[in-house]
Amino acid sequence: MIRAYAPIAIATAVLACVPALFAGSPSMMTVVTAGLVFAAYAIAFNLIFGSTGQLFLCTGALAGIGGFGSAILSDRLGVPMVLSIGIAGAAASVVGGALSWVAVSRSLGTIFTGIVTLTFSLAFQNFVLGRGDLTGGENGLRISAGSDGVLDHQVAPYYVFLALVAVYLVLFRRIQRSRMGWAFRALRDDEVAAKLAGVAVARYRIYAGAIGSAMLGVAGAVFAHHRSFIGTTTYGFANVDIRVLVMVAFGGIGSLLGPILGATAFTALDEVLVDYAQLREVLYGVVSVVLFLGFRRGAAPTIVDSWNRRSSRWSVAKRADSAPEADSR
């Protein structure tokens, strides 16, 4: 039990030390806080894609439903911020669950699920632009709820998002160890085998879509209240989906800490390439192609496996070399 959650405790403890390095720099605190937001998105995406193979290319849109939904509820309708975040998360969950339902009921494979969800993502962007009366359109939406609370400070928001990431990791781990986790593993491995074993493949895919989308919605909503301003690009495809995809593909698809590793690596890379904005976008494109062609399980797990195999071969060779000495004794 303790062993199962130890990696989460260690990762959380390490991340908790980060503000000690950057507390004096507001810009760096913004960067590392954004890194945690992306880590939260990546964990949610990993639950949907990594666990059940549903390529949701609408991570940003689902987070945007949370962000815009919560902002509108709290600022326009006066709903308390925490409640509005919850409602917006539930709305994202319903939408994500519905997208999963469409995918499973029409037996869409990974690629076609990607196309359908990408279409939804583009439709959401157009909705944000078109319904300027609700979303602020091209001018964006200023949010007052949360602007005078804990989310407005430099360091405190970091810990709010760290808590969110820790909760998401615990949730991910709990699901992995539950009956649902067995179903996810089975259907990801072989859908026909899962059906033959009695797994309700369609139902579990919808569960993954709904739970992951709720996580995206809540993270997007908290981010909106933290930033106090959201615009058309805040949850845009290029801004969110591509990055999240690359982070998960790098860190390890379906793994517990892969999204954290990916978010850390690419947040750091973003900072290194901060003066080369266009180059950064090209790099993300190239990296995503390379990762999906050469590292299907994720770069980090592939490298670790390759290292383990190499060390195992090395130790076998070493034993073979030392064998004659042992014989001669």
Binding site: W182, D189, D190, A194, A197, G198
Partner: peptide, 21 residues
């Protein structure tokens, strides 16, 4: 049609978990 990422026991556990209505 087996679950390639699982062990022999884990494959059988899936049957035990989900096979009985």
């Amino acid at each position: 049609q087996v679950f390639e990422s699982m062990t022999v026991r884990e494959n059988a556990i899936v049957g035990g978990l989900f096979g009985v209505g």
